[in-house]
């Protein structure tokens, strides 16, 4: 017999990580090759990306502004992944969080600290509200959450598009595609980076602690690992599922709130910048670990920032989306390849 592959059901973290790095490098290599054929100088582009995003304070601030929403949408998807569920609707929940925040910012007057707290909780409530129907449908009728959460993204986008170009249109500066400026602003933390960054960085840590050290966290982990066993042990699985899904929506809503109150300061059609979909990618990179989100979101922020730098060199956001898809495909394959080991069978004994 010749060499053959044997599959092992469990993989060590080192093997998994090695497989991923190889997958990631291959995906980037393939992307660079395609860009090279299209007439771009891939090596030069790569150097530009590293120098511009990590080499200056402006670069780091921009990176932080991209990192903030990705931390939260990545966490939102991860929270639900802990229960074996997919939230592909973080984009819509993000839009709703931004929508509610803008509504309050434009139409209610009050002292800034109070208003920011109000906007924070309203943004969370908006995101949770947007996932309410998929949650109830999943909990009481076992309707697939992937599609219901996803379809609501389109509804949210249309809603935001409608208010931003219609009733809430900016009448001062005359732009047609966004609302007026929201007068309440998250205080700055580092240069143009606002305190929302700290909130976004703390969120995965808080969730990891809650999961590890509280009874609720234990019940969530058990319900995710084996719903039948959890039910048998007397854990209210359905109630945990509902809270987890609403929490996931709320986190994505907060991401939208921070984007309006901290970074963009107004509501516009493309405000989500695909953060919800990229959050799925972050969760995949994080392998369901809340702390892994911190690393996964950083990598995704680097890729996204690279995309913005590439745009100045003549590439589009859609090229970045395609590259992200390629990386995700290679990551998924690499995760599977990590299970295989090349085995040389011992010589047959007679």
């Amino acid at each position: 017999m010749a060499l053959h592959f044997v599959r092992s059901p469990v993989v060590s973290s080192a093997r998994a990580l090695t497989a991923r790095v190889i997958g990631f490098v291959l995906a980037l290599g393939l992307g660079a090759l395609v860009l090279g054929i299209a007439g771009f100088d891939s090596l030069h582009l790569g150097r530009q990306i590293i120098v511009k995003s990590l080499g200056s304070q402006f670069g780091l601030e921009d990176l932080g502004l991209l990192y903030t929403p990705l931390l939260l949408t990545g966490l939102a998807v991860t929270v639900m992944a802990r229960m074996g569920l997919w939230n592909i609707g973080a984009d819509g929940q993000f839009y709703l969080g931004a929508f509610v925040t803008t509504a309050i910012g434009l139409f209610i007057k009050g002292p800034e600290p109070f208003m920011l707290v109000l906007m924070f909780f309203a943004g969370a409530a908006g995101g949770a509200l947007w996932i309410l129907v998929p949650t109830l449908a999943k909990a009481y009728a076992k309707v697939d959450e992937i599609i219901t959460t996803l379809l609501l993204n389109f509804v949210a986008l249309l809603l935001v598009y409608y208010v931003a170009t219609g009733p809430w249109r900016d009448r001062v500066s005359g732009t047609t595609a966004s609302t007026g400026r929201v007068p309440y602003k998250m205080p700055d933390f580092f240069g143009s980076l606002h305190w929302g960054f700290v909130i976004a960085l703390a969120a995965p840590i808080l969730f990891a602690l809650a999961l590890r050290y509280t009874k609720w966290g234990y019940e969530v982990r058990l319900s995710g690992a084996n719903p039948d066993a959890a039910h048998y042990a007397g854990i209210p699985v359905r109630r945990r599922l509902i809270t987890i899904m609403l929490l996931s929506g709320a986190i994505a809503g907060i991401a939208g709130m921070l984007e309006v109150a901290g970074t963009v300061h107004r509501l516009q059609g493309g405000i989500s910048n695909n953060y919800g979909y990229l959050g799925v990618m972050v969760a995949v990179l994080a392998r369901g670990s809340a702390l892994g989100v911190i690393a996964g979101a950083f990598l995704m922020a680097l890729i996204l920032n690279a995309g913005i730098i590439l745009q100045t060199q003549g590439l589009t956001t859609s090229a970045v989306l395609a590259l992200t898809g390629l990386i995700m495909l290679f990551t998924a394959i690499a995760d599977q390849f990590a299970h295989y080991r090349l085995v040389r069978p011992r010589a047959a004994t007679a």
């Binding site: 799925v280 859609s318 898809g325 998924a332």
Partner: peptide
């Protein structure tokens, strides 16, 4: 035998991004 949900989402991102480009 990679994860079908992930590969599907990846194909959607890759396809949509590539098509627009």
């Amino acid at each position: 035998r990679a994860n079908q949900v992930l590969c599907g989402l990846a194909l959607t991102m890759l396809g949509s991004g590539l098509a627009v480009t």
